[in-house]
Write a protein that binds this DNA or RNA. Structure first.
Length: 489
DNA sequence: ATGTTC
């Protein structure tokens, strides 16, 4: 099914769905226009999965501020497109789980090391990957080594990454380099179901499946030397570790639970929607606030999860290289989430205003001088982490002042072009492993099926995606990273 | 993404 609505070229990197578009059923009344960040060459595949209709649908939500936006890695999602960004008014707006996604606070964390590519031969890489595979439980339904009681889980949900550090999983300075310091303090455990807690408790400290991964990477190219230096990157060949995971079954259950409640709220508050999947509630309503407080619990779960994984990564490097992580300088460059909604202050038409920014498959990209950016990076902007698909390049970018046009947001990754089912039919896991091997990448998968689902050809080219956001000015390239070894969920 | 089918 191809989307045939209007996508008017504004310039090299922006296409508009004008607000007079009436929709497939000829009854849409857009409150504002939609903008998709893309190049000419990307438009064909963007039309293919119908996601632009979802960009138009989002413009019809009550209290939307500015435009309905989509990043170049846009594809079809539940209600909102993946790659979608929408800001809602602090008083008259709505909050929607579809604008966040099922994997609440899915995100990326980057660790640096003082190792150089030439310090590690292929056997060492293999040992490191195998050791991390042992220490970080991976795969669908993977369970953690740590068993939390109910009180401990409640503390995790309230404290996020801070809980992990207080319990020995990390360094004192780690939270400084995590978005929101790894904790949303309005998290309220009474808004989370027992079922979510039951699912979540055994999964804290596990990687999961799908496109989640743990990668040993090397710096391949430096585009912005002063920003790279600020982020602790000195030279080409420097070894880095990237972690991509989220809130596991816990966030999934929080989303499911609150979608049910907000489906009812739509009727109660008499909200007209073009698509039931856009279920939402006024931000000021009990239902809306309850979702925000539960979402914060899931966000904290994910930050704690990534923190524990970092600890085991440091331990694994220490063990295999017979050196402690401190001596290897394995500090956190940054941790960003790409599935979340938060109240933030932005400059809108020259005035500062607080809005609820939904980012679904979109990354925060705050520019220099914003107080949310760590002091150490304040002059260059926030580090932005963009994972590629398995076996391809990833990027470290910096946020820009120009990203105010997207409420401080940019893309989040490559974005699928082929469904999981299609990919499983077309590829075999063993064949993908061999392909990677030929490129000098060692992969340790938890499942052959996921390996096939995540075949590089099932994804858009991440470099094209990043070049659009760089060209449009909403984030700026700092470093390109290439994988050497990968633990795949 | 996900105890891949509430």
């Amino acid at each position: 099914m191809n989307w045939n609505g209007p996508l008017l070229k504004m310039n090299d990197f922006r296409f508009e769905i004008p607000s007079n578009y009436q929709g497939v059923q000829n009854n849409l009344h857009m409150k504002t226009s939609g903008v998709i960040y893309a190049t000419n060459g990307m438009i064909k595949s963007i039309r293919m999965d119908y996601a632009p209709e979802q960009v138009a649908n989002v413009t019809m939500l009550p209290g939307i501020v500015g435009k309905s936006l989509a990043m170049p890695d846009i594809h079809w999602g539940y209600g909102f497109p993946i790659g979608g960004v929408a800001a809602m008014d602090e008083e008259n707006g709505v909050i929607s789980p579809g604008g966040v996604g099922y994997d609440i606070n899915c995100g990326v964390r980057l660790l640096r090391t003082n190792l150089h590519f030439t310090d590690l031969d292929s056997q060492k890489i293999q040992h490191l990957v195998d050791e991390m595979f042992i220490n970080v439980p991976s795969g669908l339904g993977s369970k953690a080594k740590v068993h939390l009681n109910r009180k401990q889980l409640d503390d995790v949900l309230k404290l996020g990454a801070k809980w992990a550090i207080e319990n020995g999983y990390g360094w004192k300075e780690d939270p400084e380099y995590i978005e929101e310091h790894g904790c949303l303090d309005y998290a309220d455990i009474s808004k989370v179901s027992n079922e979510a807690k039951q699912r979540g408790a055994p999964q804290l400290g596990s990687l999961g499946a799908g496109n989640h991964f743990l990668e040993i990477q090397k710096v391949d190219e430096i585009y912005d030397e002063s920003a790279a230096k600020a982020f602790g990157i000195q030279n080409i060949g420097q070894i880095m570790v990237m972690i991509h995971t989220g809130s596991r079954g816990f966030g999934h259950q929080v989303c499911t639970d609150h979608l049910r409640v907000l489906g009812q709220a739509v009727k109660k508050y008499n909200i007209w929607l073009p698509d039931r999947q856009l279920a939402c509630a006024p931000v000021t309503s009990k239902e809306g606030q309850d979702y925000l407080k539960a979402m914060a619990c899931a966000a904290n779960f994910a930050w704690c999860n990534r923190q524990m994984i970092v600890h085991w990564v440091r331990e694994s490097f220490g063990k295999i290289l017979h050196q402690c992580a401190e001596d290897l300088d394995m500090g956190i460059v940054y941790d960003v989430c790409h599935n979340i909604a938060k109240l933030e202050e932005h400059e809108i038409e020259g005035k500062k205003k607080k809005v609820y920014v939904h980012r679904k498959g979109a990354t925060r990209s705050f520019g220099p001088d914003k107080q949310e950016v760590p002091l150490r990076y304040r002059d260059v902007g926030q580090p932005v982490l963009i994972p590629g698909d398995m076996g391809t390049e990833s990027y470290l970018l910096r946020g820009t002042k120009e990203s105010e046009e997207t409420f401080g947001s940019t893309c989040h990754g490559a974005g699928r072009v082929m469904s999981r089912t299609q990919a499983v039919h077309r590829y075999r896991g063993e064949q993908i492993i061999n392909q990677l091997k030929q490129k000098g990448i060692y992969a340790h998968p938890a499942s052959w099926k996921v390996m096939a689902e995540e075949a590089p050809d099932a994804y858009k080219n991440v470099s094209e995606v990043v070049n659009v956001t760089h060209g449009a000015g909403i984030s700026s390239k700092v470093v390109k990273l290439l994988p050497l070894g990968v633990v795949k969920g």
